[in-house]
């Protein structure tokens, strides 16, 4: 199955820390598709809060979101908008 991807930049003040990564992970888990975040070639499972936290993304970090699966397109769109909307934070 095709792997879709989208480039984004972390926009919220605090980056992918606790609450934001929890929100991202919880959202990713709603989809059947597999989801990854890629930063400088380092990959994290989008459904693992520990891996996402370990990517240590701060504000301004460029990221690629990848998704593969039946609902990959939708997952990608929703996750990207979550990040772009700064997780509803600021």
């Amino acid at each position: 199955m095709e792997c879709l991807e989208k480039k984004i930049t972390i926009a919220n003040q605090c980056g992918l820390h606790g609450r934001a990564s929890a929100k991202l992970v919880e959202t990713a888990r709603c989809f059947a598709a597999e989801v990854w975040l890629v930063r400088d070639g380092e990959e994290a499972d989008g459904k693992s809060i520990l891996e996402v936290m370990a990517l240590a993304c701060t504000k301004g970090t460029p990221l690629t979101i990848k998704a593969r699966g039946t609902d990959a397109e939708e997952a990608l769109a929703i996750l990207a908008s979550l990040v772009e909307n700064k997780f509803g934070e600021d």
């Binding site: 609450r19 919880e26 459904k47 693992s48 809060i49 520990l50 891996e51």
Partner: peptide
């Protein structure tokens, strides 16, 4: 509550 929520997420985390 958010601390406990994040603990619940970690419990099922794949890394662990």
């Amino acid at each position: 509550a958010p601390i406990i929520d994040s603990h619940i997420l970690m419990l099922r985390d794949r890394m662990l």
